[in-house]
Design a protein around this nucleic acid. Structure first.
Lengths: 296, 296
DNA sequence: AAATTGTTTTTTATCGATAAGTGAAAGACA
DNA sequence: TGTCTTTCACTTATCGATAAAAAACAATTT
């Protein structure tokens, strides 16, 4: 059956809202909460019912009021708010990156299902989706094979990445001044400066900024296949960075400076400059990832 | 439970082998049959058991012999040899191209499952795999939406295709004379000439040749992401050509001539010529597909 | 009348069961 | 001694069932 992770997560979020509003405050309407939490009204009502049952809110219908301050331990544990499908992803990446998986390793659905504590269907579905990342292959009626997160894989990934990014940067330069990309580019430039100023404390935030920056560049002249490819990039980088922490602060600082130069080039609308700045950044990103393989 | 389509297909193939060999001939070993049919020996044994049961072969162990000529109606019907997963694909494409699916149409798993006569799991698995073609999107907990096989879709598809193809053609030109690509290119060039000579009778064979040609170009300097993308191209073209038969003979003849010019350019190793011939062909392919949208 | 809540219907996510199919060890043969 | 067959343990493909979540509909309230 379905897990109730959606409910539990919505419940936790609502608790936080309650704390912020304080005792005695009226509750927003069910529709408002539904939009706020990003779940259906059915789930909102379930949350409300639970809150009432535990005495955190009183009244009913349109006259609901926050009754008491909510104790901290009222939250559901974080693990209970993660859907099975997401759990499988996390577990699998863990399994993969911990070296359990040499190139050529056979992947056994039942074994993984037991190891991860889920049904085989969950594993199957994940593998089918994960297939597009190019790391596993299927032999019909005979299971999956892990292809290896190898140097070749990374090189091929970067080849495409560079092709796509240069294409987007070139297209961007040709856009008129009135395009919405320009103010958005300014905004993200500002975020780069902010992060750079607090680099010592916040260098871990770069990963997210990096992702948003490159996706922004593509979004100016969108192409769904490039977008899809960025899912792969994001996914690989996400797990790769978790695994390779060496020189993280320095690497990120360098990358931020490269981004800023790249952004400036874009504003200059000079194709040669853009090309140079973009290539420089991509080459340095590639070097970073390949270095991780050589160190290993 | 699993369907026995593998067995049925292997059985049918074996019947054909039997007819070719003729009464009294000895059977190949189980291992040989297994390799020949591309199934496990377990399945081969099941086939053999069935054949014996029906009296088509006699003897046992190593001394099996073809007993009688096999009647034509001994074959399992073709539909019983198609695995559920494949059936779903065919049904779904039918459903989609018959205009059942306007952009924005909601896709209902249970409804499709009933319409196609399969379990929901089969539909789910198909949709998850099909997602990568960029024609459907998922809203968690709330089903799938069909995005439409639109003009935009085709344009974005072709943008990537042109990028990839030019990259591969450029890379190919730089390969040494000793590379294995050159004889293979000669071979496929010959096939083009053959097809051109019999164009009136065989113009339908072009689709397959086209596919093999473009994949060959990429295979010279391979990249798994480009390969994957070609799966999408192949898939889309396959169904698109089934649907759009207008001017098929003429279109294919033109394309063959473009291919030949392109091949010649590649042999010349002149980058400018290659670029021109390749671009010309791709532009014409794009025009063909876009014309289908405008006609519609 | 528009927004809100109450109720019912529809749809998805997930599990476990089972026949079909694979692969490898053990045994037979020539 | 190496190929072929027999046997068996393990794996995948597929289904149907069920609780959770979404969506549609109906009834109130301000």
């Amino acid at each position: 059956m379905k897990t109730d992770t959606v409910f539990k997560q919505a419940f936790n979020q609502t608790l936080t809202l309650l704390s912020a509003a304080g005792t005695g405050a009226p509750l927003p309407s069910e529709n408002a909460l539904s939009a706020d939490l990003g779940v259906s009204r059915t789930t909102v009502r379930k949350v409300l019912a639970h809150l009432a049952e535990r005495g955190y809110i009183t009244g009913q219908g349109r006259n609901r009021i926050i009754a008491t301050a909510v104790p901290d331990d009222a939250h559901f544990p974080h693990t209970e708010t993660i859907a099975t499908a997401q759990q499988v992803e996390v577990h699998f990446m863990e399994w993969m990156l911990r070296g359990h998986a040499q190139p050529g390793t056979q992947i056994n659905e039942l074994e993984l299902a037991r190891a991860f504590g889920v049904g085989t269907t969950g594993i199957r579905e994940f593998l089918n989706r994960f297939r597009r990342f190019g790391l596993i292959a299927k032999r019909p009626n005979a299971g999956w094979v892990f292809m290896g997160f190898t140097r070749d894989f990374a090189m091929e990934l970067f080849e495409i990445r560079e092709m796509f990014e240069l294409r987007s940067a070139r297209a961007l330069v040709r856009l008129p001044d009135s395009a919405t990309i320009w103010p958005r580019l300014r905004a993200i430039e500002r975020q780069h400066h902010e992060l750079l100023n607090q680099i010592d404390a916040r260098f871990q935030d770069f990963s997210d900024l990096d992702n948003r920056f490159h996706r922004l560049i593509n979004s100016a002249v969108p192409n769904r296949f490039i977008d899809d490819f960025y899912d792969i990039i994001t996914f690989i980088f996400h797990y790769h960075y978790q695994w390779n922490k060496r020189d993280e602060r320095l690497r990120n600082e360098t990358a931020i400076r490269e981004h800023l130069a790249y952004i400036q080039a874009l504003f200059s609308r000079d194709l040669v400059q853009v090309h140079a700045a973009c290539s420089l950044h991509l080459a340095s990103a590639r070097k970073t990832m390949l270095a991780a393989f050589d160190a290993h």
